[in-house]
Design a protein around this nucleic acid. Sequence first.
DNA 1: TAAATTTATATTGTACACAATATAATTGTA
DNA 2: TACAATTATATTGTGTACAATATAAATTTA
Lengths: 150, 150
Amino acid sequence: MKGADMLNLENQLCFPLYAASRLTSQLYAPLLKELDITYPQYLVLLVLWQKGNQTVSEISKQLYLDSGTLTPLLKRIEEKGLVHRTRSKADERIVSIGVTAEGTQLKEKALCIPMQLITSFKEGGNLTMEEVVAFKKTLDKMVGTLARAV
Amino acid sequence: MKGADMLNLENQLCFPLYAASRLTSQLYAPLLKELDITYPQYLVLLVLWQKGNQTVSEISKQLYLDSGTLTPLLKRIEEKGLVHRTRSKADERIVSIGVTAEGTQLKEKALCIPMQLITSFKEGGNLTMEEVVAFKKTLDKMVGTLARAV
DNA sequence: TAAATTTATATTGTACACAATATAATTGTA
DNA sequence: TACAATTATATTGTGTACAATATAAATTTA
C-alpha cells in the first residue's frame, strides 16, 4: 500500500471501530429508551449490578471514563433515583455509588436487552457465530493493548 | 450463559467496541493535535482528500454522521481555513464542501499518521497481522450490517 | 508536626453525537 | 400552475467525552 492510500477511508482500522461503536449505540437506543437511560448510563448500571457498590474511580477504571464524564452522568442517574452517591466516612475524597431499590428493579427490565440485540444483529445474517467469537477475542485483546498504550 | 450473566460487562460485545473506539481516538489525539484538528474533523478531511468535493449528505453517508453533527463541524474547519462551503447554484439546498489550498497542504502532514498509529499499536505486541486482517474483515461486515439495521 | 506531594472527585470549556424540529428549495401531482 | 410532499441542510436541546484546571482530603517528607 502506498503512503497516500493509507489515508483512504476503507483502509482505516479506527474508522470502522468508531462507526460500529456509534451504530451499535443507535441499535441500543430504542431499547434503552424504554428504561429512560442512555447507553453510557446503562454501562454504569451494568458495573453496579454486577459488582455492587463501587467508587467513582473503580467505575472509571472499568469503563475507561474520567470524572469529567462520570460526575455529571452519575448526578443525572442519581436525580432519576437509580443510584445513590455517598461520600466515604473513612476517606472523604471517595464517593461510593450504589443502585437504589429502583435501580435494582430496572435490572429486571434490562434482562431482555442482550438477547434482543443479538437477535437484531443476527437478522443482518452475514456473520457466523465462530466469526463473532474470534472477533470478540481479538477485540478484547485490542482494548487491553490500547488501555495500556494511552 | 444465564440471562443475568449476559448483563456482565465482560460478556458484552458493544462495550469493547465503544472502549476501543474511544481509546483509539485518544491514541490519535497527540498526532492530530500537531495538525490542530480533532478525530471527526480528520475523518471528514480523509473523505475530501480521497474523493474531492463532496456534498454534506455525501459526507454524511460515508461517515454515518447527520447534519446536526456535520454542519457545526464543517463550519469550524471552514473557520480554520481548511475547507470551503459553497451552496450549489443549480440546487440551492445543496452545500458542496471542498478542501482549500491550506487543506491540501495539511494532507502532507497527515501522511505519517497511519504508520505512527500502526507502530504504537504493534508495540502492544499481542496481536498478529493475520489476526488484525481477519478482525478488520469481520468489522467491515459488521458495520455494513449495522448501517442497514439502524 | 508543618509543608509538600499525592490522590479522588469536581468544575470549566470545547467539541462532538443525535433526536427532534425548522427552514427553504425542489419535485411531484391534481 | 397552485399546492402538497419530499429533500438538503440548519437549528435547538440534551448528554456525553475529554483536556485542563480546581479543590479538598489524605499521605509523605523534611
